[in-house]
Computed example of a mutant assay.
Amino acid sequence: MTIQHIIDALHQVREQKPLVVNMTNYVVMNNSANALLAIGASPIMAHSQQEMAEMMSFAGALVVNIGTLDSAWITRMRHAIEQANHYQRPVILDPVGCGATKLRTETAREFSALAKRLTIRGNASEIIALAGQKSQSRGVDALDSSEQAVDAARQLIERYQANVVVSGPTDHILTDQSHITLHNGSPMMPYVTGTGCSLSALTGAFAAVGDNTGLSAASVMGVAGELASKISQGPGSLQVNLLDTLYHLDAKALTQHLAINAH
């Protein structure tokens, strides 16, 4: 995808305002909803099995984030993915903490195998662990570099017919036909909880309008984070400034600041 395609995708999100169903963790519900609103999409934090079939019949995409996992969440998420499959909606999986515990790892693998139109968005350690390789993590924090996760991402693409976004100082966006790197963002971003989760939510919005690679979402979040950090004194102000920057982001900013390479 060229920068123009990314700009067009952003325009489509703002024009279509796709409904994105988020089954996401308690920590970041507010962050993810606000990020989607700022970019122009329409978020809903829906968890009930009783309404999920109806919800997925008219939603644009499903985002599943396993950050605060338990048996009730697993049952609801499994049902939601089945409904997304039934209505042929894209599914975004954020395998938070995959590799940290057996429960998270096995659940992430189950959901990856279940989802039919899948994009996986995670940090390097989560992607490596999901592929069955030895990862280095501390809880939900990655200790591996995104470059170290490229081979694991390729394994996931082949195993699950998925697209994969590996987030880090350099973002790697991989499909079965392409490998693109992005060099935006800010070292301050990991100090705000939920920036990765917000990226997963945005990935759902862009998938709903046709970009299921994750590239447009990662590009938008990277540039917005980079620009917001320049006017932020620390993580607190960055959180607010990131939302404002997403809201005002335009073609000129993306063209001037997006650092993108194809491999």
Rank of each mutant, 00 (worst) to 15 (best):
M1G: 09
I6D: 03
D8L: 00
D8Y: 08
A9G: 02
L10T: 12
H11W: 07
Q12C: 04
R14S: 10
K17E: 13
V20C: 02
M23K: 08
M23P: 09
M23Q: 14
T24S: 08
V28L: 01
S32I: 11
L37I: 14
G40M: 12
S42I: 12
H47C: 00
Q49H: 12
M52V: 06
M52D: 04
A53W: 06
A53I: 05
E54D: 15
M55K: 10
G60V: 08
A61S: 15
V64C: 03
A72S: 13
W73P: 00
I74L: 12
R76W: 06
E82S: 11
E82T: 12
N85F: 07
R89Q: 09
P90T: 06
L93Y: 06
P95N: 04
T105F: 01
E106Q: 11
E106T: 12
A115P: 05
N123S: 05
N123W: 08
S135E: 08
G139V: 11
L143A: 01
E147I: 12
A149V: 10
D151W: 10
R154W: 13
Y160H: 15
N163Q: 14
N163K: 11
V166N: 10
H172C: 10
I173P: 08
Q177A: 14
Q177W: 12
M189E: 04
T195P: 03
S198D: 09
A201H: 02
G204A: 00
G204R: 03
G210V: 04
D211K: 05
S216R: 02
G222H: 07
S229P: 08
S232T: 01
G234C: 10
P235M: 05
G236Y: 04
L242P: 00
D244W: 01
D244V: 00
T245L: 01
H248L: 05
L249Y: 05
L249K: 05
D250V: 09
H257I: 05
I260C: 10
N261Q: 15
